[in-house]
């Protein structure tokens, strides 16, 4: 909470240092100084900084109001502007994440299970390709050629489910590669530990060891980042969304900053910092659930 308060206040104060021209929605040339002063006064910009900051927090906390957009869609509440876009991004991101986890983790498990064999090499080749090639290359490839081969629409249409397939594939590829890589890596780490030798000495098969002992233990280091990753899917992907013309969050923050839509910037910074903080908290809780050695409650010595 304190983090969020600080982040937001600092951004708010910094934005007060910007030139005031932006508040006139690009029509500053045609306005007289009195009109300009009036607008600024209405926005409360002549008040001392602490009053401004106080008002900002008061509106936010008691009315859930983040102000209106100034440039992008003049007069529309920031929240109303963000939520529909975030919904699209989240929908795509969450579905892609499910694929990333399902395919990525199972790929990692299989690679670790047959380490050094054919499947492992194949997986490594995939990971290497995805990481080495600029995303733009294979995104374009998918959009141009895969759409032809599979007879899928090249652009997103809200009422056509088939048009969602390609963007989701694009969004998943990178995540699959990194999930597989980390899963494999942690599984290989775990397999060299003593308790695996003991499990084998009990008379377990390698597969039993891999599924009953190694998998869960390998997953834990990754569990912490899951909530953050899930929540941040609402920020969308700039490239995929513009490529397939999805009305998502992709470039919203950058556009807002470029066009100096101060209230929008504030709103989005609030959103993203909230996501980070909540995501980290959820990550910690997740670790606690998965790993009995971790406890959020203060306790004496662990032994």
């Amino acid at each position: 909470m304190i983090t969020m308060f600080l982040v937001l206040s600092i951004v708010f104060m910094l934005m007060r240092l910007l030139p005031v021209d932006t508040y006139f929605g690009g029509r500053s040339d045609s306005m007289s100084d009195t009109v300009k002063d009036n607008i600024l006064k209405q926005l409360g910009l002549f008040d001392p900084w602490y009053v401004q900051l106080g008002n900002f927090w008061k509106n936010l906390l008691f009315h859930g109001d983040l102000g209106e957009s100034i440039v992008i869609q003049q007069g529309v509440k920031c929240v109303d502007l963000i939520i529909p876009k975030a919904k699209w991004s989240f929908q795509f991101g969450a579905i892609a994440m499910v694929f990333q986890m399902l395919i990525g983790y199972s790929m990692g498990v299989l690679m670790a299970r047959w380490k050094g064999k054919f499947f492992d090499s194949l997986g490594n080749l995939y990971i290497l390709l995805i990481n080495a090639l600029p995303a733009a290359v294979y995104f374009l490839f998918i959009q141009l050629y895969l759409s032809k081969v599979l007879h899928l629409p090249m652009f997103f249409e809200p009422y056509n489910t088939a048009s969602r397939i390609l963007p989701i594939i694009c969004l998943s590829l990178g995540g699959i590669a990194s999930n597989a890589m980390w899963m494999r890596r942690y599984m290989v780490d775990q397999m060299n530990l003593d308790y695996i030798r003991l499990a084998r000495a009990k008379g377990m098969t390698s597969s039993q060891v891999a599924f009953r002992h190694v998998m869960r233990n390998a997953f834990i280091p990754m569990a912490q980042s899951l909530p953050t990753t899930l929540l941040f899917t609402i920020s969308g992907s700039l490239y995929v969304e513009s490529l397939f013309s999805i009305p998502g969050m992709g470039g919203l923050l950058i556009t807002s900053i470029q066009r100096q839509d101060n209230t929008m910037v504030q709103a989005m910074v609030l959103l993203y910092s909230a996501i980070s903080v909540v995501g980290l908290l959820l990550g910690d809780i997740m670790m606690m659930v998965c790993d009995p050695r971790i406890s959020l409650v203060k306790k004496g010595g662990s032994r």
Partner: peptide
């Protein structure tokens, strides 16, 4: 090996700190 390991011949390892699965 499966019907030998653990059933007929068993082993106690050196370091008890690391030879148990910490999450079970």
């Amino acid at each position: 090996w499966l019907h030998i390991r653990g059933k007929k011949i068993a082993m106690v390892f050196q370091d008890p700190m690391t030879s148990l699965n910490p999450l079970k």
